[in-house]
Design a protein around this nucleic acid. Sequence first.
DNA 1: TTGTACGCGTTATCAC
DNA 2: GTGATAACGCGTACAA
Lengths: 354, 354
Amino acid sequence: MGKNKNVTFNDIAEYTHFSKTTISRYFNNPDSLTLENQQIIADALEKLGYKENKVARILANGKTEFIGVIVPDLYHHYYSEILDQILATYETYGYKFLVFIGNEHEETERRYIEELMAYKIEGLIILSHTIPSKELADLNIPVVTIEREDEFVSSVNTDNYAGGHDAAILLADHGCDVLLHINSNSCKGTPSYGRVQGFTDVCRDKGLYHEVFLRNLGVDYTATYPALVSIMDEIENKYPGHRKGIFASNDNVANIILNILVRKYGTLPDSYQIIGFDNSPISREAVFPITTIAQKIDVLANEAVSILVAEMNERKKRRPVLSQQPVHKTIPPVLICRETTEGHNCFIENKRSH
Amino acid sequence: MGKNKNVTFNDIAEYTHFSKTTISRYFNNPDSLTLENQQIIADALEKLGYKENKVARILANGKTEFIGVIVPDLYHHYYSEILDQILATYETYGYKFLVFIGNEHEETERRYIEELMAYKIEGLIILSHTIPSKELADLNIPVVTIEREDEFVSSVNTDNYAGGHDAAILLADHGCDVLLHINSNSCKGTPSYGRVQGFTDVCRDKGLYHEVFLRNLGVDYTATYPALVSIMDEIENKYPGHRKGIFASNDNVANIILNILVRKYGTLPDSYQIIGFDNSPISREAVFPITTIAQKIDVLANEAVSILVAEMNERKKRRPVLSQQPVHKTIPPVLICRETTEGHNCFIENKRSH
DNA sequence: TTGTACGCGTTATCAC
DNA sequence: GTGATAACGCGTACAA
């Protein structure tokens, strides 16, 4: 497996005059050895410079302790932060993660999944949106998705509806008489569309004046900026003299809106309140820190792994693998108040000390 | 290794009346079989639903095709973007990556490395700063570090000196008569200290008035902000009426400085020019897009993997592993001009289409 | 408490 | 072009 012959259980066995079995037991069930013998073996391991070989162990007992992860990219802070939290669960469960970046390319992701299966992953976490959950379910290993279509597999999702709801309530509470939501026109069908519904439902229920802008916002900053310039023009013309509450689809959009206003007025005018979504770094670092709705990324990640581990453990017990019902968990978001709305009645949460 | 008996070479062999060996050859050296027989086996694989098992292959041939990666965190865009690029090299080299987040905790990272060694990784990429390169060299597998202490192992680093140099030149060219550099007081000994030296060397050589502020800038936004408020106070008092060129240690610092000024003056005054470092998203998304010096992250990552692959290939040839000399590669940074310096004489590079 | 013998699924080394 | 057979390093009945 490397260069010069590795030290194996055999070598330790010969050296200590025990059998391989006993050496194996030293690792997997040390209490079954006398303390003295444990010491003898420990010394031998040290002396011969033994390094454990988990690949051989896998072949023998079938447990790879691998979990596959497919993430669309790590460019967006949301994904990298989730991955960060997922990887951190190694400390809790001991599973190792084989990570692939899918770039939302379906065939590529399918290849990655095949490779992962060849390495006998025990479970799979999917963040990308391409492969239908039906197909994932057919892999016959536990699968958990995060914030994506999840009909046939277990999943963890943010309560986007509550997010939209809370945003509308906050804006209304802060005296806005015009409530606006700006989002991409391609958001239908994604979990995040719940935000739009939460927002409009509240407005309708409470009889609040509102308008939803579903537009093509482009995919990067340079495309989004001009798109928002024109939307803001529209808003300024349509609602002069009003106190406008804007709920943006995400913090990037909120930040651009803020920048447009600050560059125009030299400050954020009192006639605007802005709420973003994601609690991404930009929301904190913007020229005026942006009130935002945070997904509890740590909770999402931990729940995902936790559900996965539970299902993997089930597999190890039951022989006749009865296809278990998928479990779907919903995590409430958290409102984080900053300077783009005046602060009170917000739950402040410091997600991380960076 | 799973639930119901997996289909193995044995099953295929029985079904086709070939031997296991031939089945193996079908995968590893198909040309040595007749086309008809290839077809027969292909059909059998399909019929029986064979799934390859790379774990068994590893045990037999010793090649895991695993590369270990230890990254300090994925919270900082720099690290997640590097990891993104590293993972993308799967398409080129086929190596799989086992990723751990070290959090700059030395003992933890040591444990992670042990775990990685137990899984027989063929090479290791280190981004974290804790474990001395001497110790990494003793692992007896190829190791490549990125932007960290690298005396005893191969490495890839940004030419930080050139970065500091370019920043000073640009500020001087833009008519600044006071050149300022703001950095953390703990930057000595890190590769990034080269920026300070590049900056001061140019100033000294060209007789430009300059001052370097090495201060405790804290570790997060809330700590850095007040620290910079007081530094900016100092600067405003000390250099009134001057055109001040500020080279910040990174984009976050540059952005805070920008925010402080914009919140005070309603815009970025002509008396200031600002350059950041990293080309992180904030530099593009700031209220005035920030001129910055970009590390070529894609190049860093690709060179790192490339060097590692080369060294791993060497291992497979030579039996008497002669300890090869570490190779150190330096990547020049790229100046990206935006609105915090008036633009010309800059090389614009679009690193990614997000 | 310890040992024997075999299996895990593939590749490598010879033969033929 | 194809096949036996022995590794690879460890786990696990079962036996003692």
